[in-house]
């Protein structure tokens, strides 16, 4: 039984676990080189693909492990917090976020690691992100309608496409591995 299932995410005990899990999250982000805005943005200039490699490997690892644990009945991913799909704000939000990412040099999690590494631009980015959050809260009334556009409730790709989860997992793994093989070959060819 996890904290969310028992409605105990608001307890100090859950917060203690969240602190430890956050520390592990920050550790791996920093080890990957994500305490550097240059490294984070290099992908968008085709110089270094660590963002894609780390992100896709993390998704594939978690996807496969959660799926296998689920097959054995050890984890039930329907009993965890899942964000509802609302297509319009998530697609438009994604596009705007991407612009902010390459212009600002950070995303929220990596900016925390940047601040921990002493980067002033990360601190300024976080200040901007707070201004943006407040702006959203006060802009919300004028976004009425849009924030519900394309609402699908809790929607997963297997349900949406009508394909069994196992096949989707296999397809995502195959896609990630193909991208990695392509990147490795391309980088080697370019270096030569």
């Amino acid at each position: 039984m996890n904290f969310f299932e028992q409605d105990l995410l608001g307890t100090p005990q859950a917060w203690a676990y969240a602190l430890v899990i956050g520390a592990a999250f920050g550790f791996w982000l920093e080890r990957a080189g994500f305490g550097s805005s240059r490294k984070l943005t290099a992908m968008f200039f085709l110089r270094d693909f660590a963002v894609l490699q780390v992100m896709f490997t993390a998704i594939v690892t978690a996807l496969v492990v959660l799926h296998v644990l689920g097959l054995f009945g050890w984890v039930d991913v329907t009993h965890v917090y899942r964000t509802e799909t609302v297509l319009a704000p998530q697609i438009v939000g994604g596009l705007v976020f991407g612009v902010g990412f390459v212009a600002g040099g950070w995303c929220p999690g990596t900016a925390l690691v940047g601040v921990a590494s002493g980067k002033l631009d990360a601190l300024v980015f976080l200040g901007g992100a707070m201004l943006g959050s407040v702006a959203y809260a006060f802009a919300l009334p004028s976004l009425a309608g849009f924030t519900e556009l394309g609402a699908c409730g809790i929607s997963t790709l297997p349900e949406w496409l009508g394909i069994s989860p196992t096949w989707i997992v296999i397809a995502v793994v195959a896609m990630a591995v193909s991208v990695f093989v392509f990147l490795e070959r391309w980088q080697k060819a370019r270096a030569a």
Partner: peptide
């Protein structure tokens, strides 16, 4: 620093709109 502030504002606004960022949504 100007771009960091502006980019941060866009990312902050957008992550509220999308109910999460690269950590909470994408990953």
């Amino acid at each position: 620093l100007g771009f960091a502030l502006g980019g941060g504002a866009l990312a902050g606004f957008a992550s509220r709109m999308a109910q999460g960022c690269t950590s909470g949504q994408a990953l």
